[in-house]
Simulated assay, not measured.
Amino acid sequence: MNDLLTIVSAAGPLAGGWGIHGLWMRRRLSAARRDPLSGLWTRAPSERRAARVLAHHQHVVVVLVDLDGFKALNDTFGHAAGDAVIRATAASLNDALTSRPGAVAARLGGDEFTAVVPLPDPFSLPWLLRGLHGALTAPFRHGGRDLTVGASIGAALSSDLTPEPRQAGPQTLPVLLRLADEAMYAAKRAGGGWNYPAVTEQRFATAAGRRAGRPGTHAPHHKEPA
């Protein structure tokens, strides 16, 4: 009995050490999946989470955001201001999606961001996009001055492609990202705002390639009214 107690006592600190090491490793792995500047998910882990959201919700919107005027602000006020813009954009995304359980936000790189958001119904989409645009373009304080950037937002809705979540396949997310990307560039060409074109079967069949401008990829623009 005494021998057993001795072994258990000796193993205690070792087990505790492995527990701390495991916690440290989990934190390191989680940090590696996060963008170091914004704190948002990076592309690969965000896409894995997005696929799970698509598989469990009927209405899921994929949003792509590209900041307008970011390079000019960065050139005028310096890289520290540019970094502040990225952090402020991430904070605005997180704040806007706080009330949306299951939402996934990520930084794709540079001044491009994405969000995958489950919706109770398609009719709430304009309110979401309006709120996102307002949050992303609100002034923020840096270096004793108020700074602002614009935002072009494109969106694509999963239920326009697959009426039931169980029908979402491995290509659903790439297709929605492409359509949201095209919608975002349509918004950018029109001067910013948000754009959600209804996806028709014909448009879905002809939407090919990244960025708008190819035949079959043009969409009506829905810019926030002045």
Rank of each mutant, 00 (worst) to 15 (best):
A156H: 07
G216R: 09
G110D: 09
A207C: 14
R145F: 09
W18Q: 13
I7E: 14
S92N: 15
W41H: 12
S99P: 01
L157G: 09
P174D: 07
G82H: 04
W41R: 08
I86L: 14
T89Y: 10
L119A: 04
A138S: 13
D3W: 06
K223F: 10
L5M: 04
A212G: 04
H142C: 03
H221W: 08
D160F: 01
H221I: 03
E224G: 08
L161N: 06
F123K: 15
S30R: 15
G192M: 04
S46K: 03
E47L: 15
D66Y: 04
L157Q: 12
T42Q: 07
L108Q: 11
L173Y: 00
A187S: 12
A155R: 03
E164C: 09
R214T: 05
D121A: 15
E224A: 15
D66S: 12
D181W: 01
V60W: 07
R130D: 15
R145N: 06
H133I: 02
A31P: 00
G69R: 07
H56M: 15
I153T: 00
T137C: 14
W194Y: 15
F204L: 06
I7T: 08
T6S: 03
G143V: 02
K223S: 09
R145Y: 03
Y185P: 00
P126Q: 14
V116I: 04
V53H: 08
I153R: 14
S30G: 07
G69E: 10
R48H: 06
K223D: 12
A103I: 05
L136G: 06
Q58P: 07
T89H: 08
E201S: 14
D146G: 11
W18L: 14
A205V: 05
L157F: 06
H59F: 08
L157T: 03
T137V: 09
A91G: 12
R48F: 08
L176N: 00
P163L: 08
F140G: 06
P118F: 01
A88V: 00
W41G: 01
S124F: 11
W24A: 15
